[in-house]
Each structure stands twice: as structure tokens, then as C-alpha cells.
Amino acid sequence: MTRLATVRGGDTTPGVSPPSATPPAPAPDRLTWRQRLSHWDVRWSPYLYISPFFVLFALIGLFPLGYTAWISLHDWSLLGGKGEFVGLENYREVLDNPYFVKQTVNTLSIFVLSSGPQIVIAVVLAALLDTQLRGRTWWRMSILLPFVVSPVAVAIIFGSLFGDRYGLLNEIITWVGFEPVQWHTDRFASHVAIATMVNWRWTGYNALIFLAAMQAVPRDLYESAELDGAGKVRQFLSVTLPMIRPTMIFVVITSTIGGLQIFAEPRLFDDTAAHNGGADRQFGTITMLVYDFGWQLRDLGRASATAWMLFLLICVFAVLNYLAIRRLGRLGGGDR
């Protein structure tokens, strides 16, 4: 028996099966509630899964930032609450404050003395821990110990080291034959002491971050470089540093944010009852000025204005450091 297949137009062709046609999708207004629910789930569930992060970031990040900006435009007292709108008057008063410029310079000085050496030492330590070092697991654990020590304990330890009269370092300096250093009264010496405290706490933490990045570098790249005659130093400069550039950008930016917001170390380093960063604010920082405005003078308007100026300063330095690291990566052949 000859099988006839009906085609479009009413024609029949012997031995040809009818083409399989995909049924048309139902119109949106004809979808059942189950189909609508499935459609919404596929479309919106990814955004729902990531929404907790953005909700928390908006609550604890963006809202305080915007609210601080709103406070900085008002005459806002800690005890009296919101006052009249004053515009940029709080910013003008902060800039006219005799300690603002000085404490800004102090902040930048401590930042340079801490962040730069800290990153260099952390990279070197990570490179040493990435080798076949005997007992490397113990060393990797030990370099993280300073990070878990309380800042108060760090201040007590380094207060004994950098004491003006009975400090261990001054005892050694005097024994060698030099004059003792006035670590708390000399401006530059106090910056060196505080930067040493910061480096001691954070170098090991950053070294472990660099170590994780170095261990992710493919080993065949080192083998290829070794076959080409590159030594260990050349491999480190031409392979390791370009490959860990994204991690270095992350560490530099986080170090910039933390270094410019330094508060605990200089406040605890002050051995006077006022804790203002020295008698002449020789090692006071911007965050300490924010604290003085907000809690000692009870002026939240000027404190918020100072905090926003610090925020803008951090943004500028973070961008500059990011561009500098990208430039160094291109010069080292690591443009990826």
C-alpha cells in the first residue's frame, strides 16, 4: 500500500512522511500560573541569589556614606542633634583648622613608611615560602601570628622598644655610643616607630595573600623559562611578578585604604593622657582628628566633613596606585 503524505497546499507525495512541526509557544497572556512561575524563576532567581550582598552593602556601606555626607552639610551636634543647613561651611572650618594640614602630612608620611616596605617585604617573604624551604608549613603559620595579636598588646610591646628613656632600642643606641632617639617627641622618629608597628602586624598577612597567588602560577612557565636560560631572579621578575599583578593591585589598594585610615597605632603610641597624637600633634592622623571633632568637641558636622575629605584622599591614592601597578606590569611584560 502506498502511503500518502499531505503537504502544505493540499498536495500529496507518495512515501514522504509529514514534517514534524514544533507547536507554537503559548502567548504570555495564556500561560498558566505554573508556567508563569517557572518563567519568573528562570528570569529573576539569579538576581535574588546575589541580592543579599547588595542589600547588606547598601545598608552598611552606601547608606552610612551618604548619611555622613548629609551630616557634613549641617551644623550637627552630638548631643543637640541636627541643626541648620550650613552647606560647605564645615569643610571650610576643617581646612582652616591649624592641625588639619599637619595631621594630613603625618598620615601620608606614616602611610609611605609603612605601605611601601610592607609590600616589598611581603613579596620577598612569599617568594621564599614558595620554594622548597624546610619546615615551610611552620613558617607559613608563624608569619601570620603578628596579625592575630591585639593592637593594644602590640602598643605595649613596641612602647617598651621605643621608649624615650628606658626603651630597649635607646639602650642599644646608647651602648653603641650615639645619642638616644626621642621616639615620641621627634616627628620623623615617631612616624618610623608607628610605621614599624604597622609593618610588623600586616606584612605576614599580605605575604600569605601573595603566596596563594604565586602557588597558582603554572609551573610549566618556570620550566620554560629555565630551559631558555633564565635564573631564579629573572624568573621572579619576568614570570612571577607579572602573573601576580592582579593580586598585587588588590594588596596595594587595601594597604592604601588601611594605611590612610590608621588610628589604633598612633593613638596607643601616645603615652600622654590626652591621646591626641603628641603634645604638638607630631604623629596625629586624620582619623584621630575625626575622633577629636566628633567625640571631644561633639561636632559631628565637622567630623563628617573631615571623614569625607579623607574618603576623597583615599580614592585619589587608590587610583594612583592602581595606575602605577598597571604601568609596572606593562613594563615587566605582564600586560594581560
Rank of each mutant, 00 (worst) to 15 (best):
L79A: 09
R267Y: 11
D164Q: 09
P28N: 00
L221S: 02
G15M: 04
R245A: 12
T240K: 03
V94H: 12
P26L: 12
T196R: 07
P266T: 00
D75L: 05
T256L: 02
V217I: 15
G294M: 07
H39L: 06
L328M: 10
L129F: 13
S51G: 04
L289E: 11
L31D: 10
F85I: 00
F269K: 02
E179M: 01
D271K: 08
G15S: 09
M1T: 10
E223S: 10
L79H: 07
S77Q: 08
D271F: 07
H39F: 13
R234W: 10
N90C: 09
K102R: 10
V198R: 01
P98H: 04
M1F: 13
A225H: 00
L300Q: 03
Y99D: 14
F147S: 05
D130H: 13
Q235G: 04
R219W: 06
I194K: 01
W76F: 15
I325F: 09
V16A: 09
Y322R: 02
S238R: 03
Y49E: 07
L145K: 02
G294H: 08
L125G: 12
V198W: 10
I110L: 14
N90D: 08
E84H: 08
A303S: 14
V181P: 11
F54Q: 01
S51M: 11
G81M: 03
F54G: 00
I325A: 13
R36S: 07
L268H: 06
G163C: 04
L227N: 08
T104I: 05
D271P: 04
W76Q: 00
L289T: 04
